[in-house]
Nucleic acid binder design. Structure first.
Length: 577
RNA sequence: GCCUCAGUGGCUUAGCCUGGUAGAGCACCGCAUUGGUAAUGCGGAGGUCGGGGGUUCAAUUCCCCUCUGAGGCUCCA
């Protein structure tokens, strides 16, 4: 409860801050029109209609002006007026007037000195209660979040009740920057991006190890869950995409090519290819539920401004699966997938995920009735499984509603990874059938699902969650063996040989460098274990083992170390377990 | 795609405002050093300043275009 109170106070503070920001901008730039200015997680923003963006100099002046307003200790007064009166008060403020249109009953304003803003509140009692605030950045933002509307200039800021909390926030942001997967990927030589192929990942040898370990685990667990893996072509005839509905709903994001005078498209999704496999023979209800999985590489021409490291790329591999089932199997299958997703996330050690139910988007295929039915099924499953979820209206796939699994990156931004989608349309479009117990042909129900979402995105999140210190089973550099003197080389080589024989990824550092130097390098390479071999170790045939957190254990028998690390790898142990 | 900002050896970066063809650290190579848990010392090689155009006697530095990246917005796995 106390925590909640604090959040509420913080929201009041930040919301008041946004008013002070608007007040300051109004004072300095009288011609600028005001948009909206709410409190958000970690801060606040305000949108302004100004021709050019605010530059650093202007931002500094705005901060100064805000400080002046705070110092004047202006009380915030709530004013209630009729809609007519409000219209008069907002004369010339076209955005505010637009907001007013949607409001009913009494209209409330908040007033501080000579500045009034259309606002529900609540607010602090006076501007003087703002202790620590800072303007952070600017950006463009479409009015009312619609790209058809004009782009306004947004100023972001944050505020706290004391300076310490502000400093802590700044520190947190700096730490977040160090966790950035793009930075870590470059430092550790895991992957790179190149101008020659924007939005496409180049996996280096070490990155490929991570990638393949993820897939290895994925295949193991999917085999256990009775999935059958398939592989379908990347380039398929345009006609297929027209009948699947992708042409009408997705073509802006697709790549096309012409082969022998025929139009082809590069697949942005795997479903149509999967449909063709299904249709290649007749199916019986006895086969159901039939779980067909594909690690399918998709290409989507994402807008250039949306590309973001591994999180948002133009070529990515989905851990897709299509499940064909009978109506009375649907719920059970969805429940199974939810369990599977949660199990896999736990193995990877993801601390918090958010589950969302996304419903019918504006652009969609299929009838309203079918959509409502599908949404009802998904809602029921979530309720029956007692899963906390958020409703995300209008965010479903164009062919059906979905349950999404989101995980956080280092900056607290959430990314959709897993998804479960109910699809009544695709089976219709492709005229899928099965023979039922009654001897008649029926339409199967199809589920689309991913667990990791995109392997690329998932690894990106993984790296940030671990700040690059991957669990042993995933780490491309599991062990680094380093020598103290050349005298220890033969034994060090023997150790490396033994580890390699056991399939452990090990590197020998026998450079003529000091031990502290080599230890430092090993730590920077984020090897899980650093084995230092000196005279003592040679003599007793033991190891000195240093872990990633800097602890050192001496006198460990090689066989014991091998047993332990193999166990750790086999169990796919992560640090949160 | 839109808004703002950025782009200098493999990496991190100084210089750019006030034009006169680049300076450092790490990594790399060589030599010396054989040293116990986050950086041994010395020396060397390496960049024409994302790309194109313009202004100028002269551009990394000023202007325009373009590409790529960052943070947002819209969109999305």
């Amino acid at each position: 409860m106390k925590e909640k109170d604090k959040e509420l106070e913080l929201e009041k503070l930040r919301h008041t801050c946004s008013h002070v920001l608007a007040h300051a901008v109004r004072n300095l730039f009288p011609k600028v029109k005001l948009g909206m200015g709410p409190a958000i997680e970690n801060g606040f923003y305000y949108d302004f209609d100004k021709k050019e963006g605010f530059d650093q100099e202007e931002l500094k002046n705005i901060e100064k002006e805000m400080k002046r307003i705070i110092r004047r200790n202006l009380p915030l007064k709530k004013i209630e007026v009729s809609k007519e009166k409000a219209k008069e008060m907002l004369k010339g403020e076209k955005y505010k007037l637009e907001l007013l249109e949607d409001l009913k009953g009494k209209i409330t304003f908040y007033e501080q000195g000579d500045f009034k803003d259309l606002c529900k509140g609540p607010h602090l009692e006076t501007t003087g209660d703002i202790i620590a605030f800072s303007l952070l950045k600017t950006s463009g933002a479409y009015w009312k979040g619609d790209s058809k509307n004009k782009m306004l200039q947004r100023i972001y800021g944050t505020a706290f009740f004391n300076k310490n909390e502000m400093d802590e926030y700044v520190l947190r942001m700096e730490e977040a920057e160090r966790r950035d997967h793009r930075k870590i990927g470059k430092q550790l030589d895991w992957f790179s991006f190149h101008e020659e192929a924007p939005g496409n990942v180049f996996w280096h040898p070490k990155g490929s190890i991570i990638y393949n370990e993820v897939l290895k685990y994925w295949r193991e667990i999917h085999e256990r869950e009775d999935y059958q893996e398939v592989k379908t072509p990347i380039i398929l005839n345009k006609k297929l995409w027209m009948s699947s509905g992708h042409w009408d709903n997705f073509k802006e994001n697709m790549y096309f090519t012409k082969i022998d005078d025929t139009d082809f498209a590069v697949k942005p999704m795997n479903c149509p290819g999967g449909m063709l496999i299904y249709k290649s023979r007749l199916h019986s209800y006895r086969e159901f539920p039939m779980r067909i999985a594909e690690l399918g590489t998709c290409h989507r021409h994402e807008l250039s401004g949306t590309l973001q490291g591994l999180f948002r790329v133009r070529m990515f591999t989905q851990d897709d699966a299509h499940i064909y089932c009978l109506p009375d199997q649907v719920k059970g299958e969805i429940k199974k997938i939810i369990k599977l997703v949660l199990e896999i996330y736990k193995t990877f050690g993801f601390p918090e995920g958010k589950i969302e139910l996304s419903t019918m988007p504006k652009k969609h295929i299929g009838s309203l009735k079918v959509w409502k039915e599908s949404e009802k099924i998904l809602t029921e499953v979530l309720k029956e499984e007692k899963i906390d979820y958020e409703l995300n209206p209008g965010d479903g796939a164009f062919y059906g509603p979905k349950i999404d699994f989101h995980v956080k990156d280092c900056l607290g931004r959430t990314w959709q990874c897993g998804t479960i989608q109910l699809d009544f349309s695709m089976p219709e479009n492709f005229d899928l059938k099965y023979e039922a117990a009654d001897g008649q042909k029926h339409r199967p129900i199809m589920l689309h699902r991913t667990v990791l979402g995109s392997i690329e995105r998932f690894i990106g999140v993984l790296i940030e969650n671990y700040a690059g210190k991957l669990p042993v089973w995933l780490n491309p550099t599991q062990v680094i063996v380093l020598t103290v003197t050349d005298r220890s080389k033969p034994f060090a080589k023997r150790v490396v040989g033994e580890l390699k024989k056991n399939g452990i990824r090990v590197h020998l550092d026998d450079r003529a460098q000091s031990v502290p130097k080599k230890v430092r390098d090993s730590q920077l390479h984020k090897a899980n274990y650093t084995l230092t071999i000196g005279d003592k170790e040679v003599e007793t045939e033991t190891l000195a083992i240093r872990t990633l957190d800097g602890n050192v254990k001496f006198n460990v028998k090689l066989s014991k170390f091998i047993d332990e690390i193999l166990k750790e790898i086999k169990e796919r142990k992560n640090y949160s377990k």
